[in-house]
Amino acid sequence: MVLLSLALAGCGGDHSILDPAGPAARGVAWLWWGMLTAFTLVFLMVVGLWLAAFRRRGHPVRSAAQERRLGLGWILGGGILLPGVSILLLLAVGVPAGQRLLPLPGVEAPRVIEVIGHQWWWEVRYPHAEGEVVTANHLAMPAGEPVDFHVTGADVIHAFWVPRLGGKIDMLPGRVNRIRLEADEPGVFGAQCAEFCGAQHAHMQLHVEAMERDDFAAWLEARRRPPPQAEGHDTAREAFGEHCARCHRVEGLAEGTGGPDLSDIGSRATLGAGVLALEEGAIARWLAEHQTLKPGNRMPAHDHLDAETLEALGAWLETLRP
């Protein structure tokens, strides 16, 4: 009852299971409301009967045989029949519902997007014959068609979960797991690592953006080319080569590995896997304060760099948008 009244208060939010935006999540949301209704009735019945047993006045005199029959009736009815029928129904609903979520072989093989969990950021790869596109902490996908996500973990176990689209799947080092999700309409959805993965598990969010099929194609195409080189920013490029390029990649400039690919960082929604919104000056702030904003993250502190350099780096990185 409390839950129901809360429900009126809203099921919304970027991460809400109850505000589904795809077929898989919708199925589960319906399951939830159905189970909630049925089980609330069961709950009220059981507790009601117990309370009634306490409140009863006037106990009829019964023979031992009558008592035994009555007791047996309670146990058979409530202990066997009630749960028996309930779980049979539930299995009958649940197994087909689960089956629909399976990546069954269909007519057309869906698009594959690879997601790799790192402590504490997301690497997203779009395999393509004409060259792979790699982004970080930002996942674009076409709306209105199923997409197969192939997920794995780079270091520890993470879990890939876009609550408004559907269930989660673990990202295991050494294994590739698959999950099929679909977004009904273009939109932006929150996603968060769902398996505890260490100190910054809380700050491991992924910005998921579903787009029209054509927009998605264009989005990919734009990232297949090196980012445009803005005028000036030479000191920043130099500093980047010196201090950042070992871990970070920028298409056409640096081939670092270990940290997020920064080729399109200027076009992202957030920094630090959801710590800061990407506004003007945000990157410079992140570079200066990232160990305060997200303590323990794997990027070393930049105390040895002066504020000017950091600001120059931030300004240049903001220009990296396809």
Binding site: F54, H59, G71, W74, I75, G78, I80, L82, P83, I87
Partner: peptide
């Protein structure tokens, strides 16, 4: 789900005990 059955048996055995007792 199967484990719900023995649990329900106990809950209803307790209920029946209350129902038939004082």
């Amino acid at each position: 789900m199967l484990v719900a059955v023995p649990t329900a048996i106990q809950i209803f055995a307790w209920l029946a005990t209350l129902w038939l007792g004082r």
